[in-house]
Write a protein that binds this DNA or RNA. Sequence first.
DNA 1: ATAAATGCAAATGATTTGCAGGCTC
DNA 2: GAGCCTGCAAATCATTTGCATTTAT
Lengths: 140, 140
Amino acid sequence: MDIETRAQEFEQALRRAGVRITRQRAALLRVLAGAGDHPDANQLYQRASEAGAGVSLATVYRTLSALETQGVILKLEFEGEPARFEPADGRHHDHMIDVETGEVMEFVNERIERLQAEIAAEMGYEIVRHRLELYVRRKT
Amino acid sequence: MDIETRAQEFEQALRRAGVRITRQRAALLRVLAGAGDHPDANQLYQRASEAGAGVSLATVYRTLSALETQGVILKLEFEGEPARFEPADGRHHDHMIDVETGEVMEFVNERIERLQAEIAAEMGYEIVRHRLELYVRRKT
DNA sequence: ATAAATGCAAATGATTTGCAGGCTC
DNA sequence: GAGCCTGCAAATCATTTGCATTTAT
């Protein structure tokens, strides 16, 4: 799926929720749709600005939280750094962070997901959401 | 192990690292040693103050980070709240947070630990540390 | 037309830090 | 006695918010 298509899907989701698509938001959606990495609010602000969109950082934050509320993007809060964001389109995955380089990788493991659900169930709970982050170093 | 014994073990660890044991730190160590919950900096500050120790919040933070550096306590950063701390004496465990009540529970699962190590290894990494949090709701 | 969104600057909240005087080793 | 510690207040940093003005629908 190309960037424009994905951006339009984001727009639909927002419109459906009654959120207005302003010039700023349209620009942000495109930046997000094209982000292969996991940018933070400030990086998104930079990218949108470079793309010629007149956007303020406050609006970036406000838009990000609207998008998060609509479930269009996910907020990632890794240790010791500002929150990062990623499109929420794919399937659920967890993250692995290289502590030397800062690189963020994604991974999926069905067995871990199942075990988590079992653990919660055994204690009489159901999982609302979870957070699994592996801080790793390249093996020598 | 009683509170005083644990507090003294904390002191030893700090002394060994060349950190001075001041009246404030001694008090903090006792508060931490006696904490069955997972208090944040401000709660520790309150408790130490109530216990009659004249401590400032700045010193609480400075002491907590010294303790963390020495590996005596662990810092927990759950979503949307100030950092909490717990003594690092027991075996490793992860946390489950009841999103309704805020209650924090601990759990251990060897299989999940092993799977995490395997996942990292498959991608050529070794785990430095990890974070696994289950945000749960009591089953209806 | 009207309610929602924007930009700016000021406010927040948690945590950190500079500095002058104190206290531990 | 020397240097680490402390308390205080001011500084940071990411994020949020009040308000007057603009804009999408």
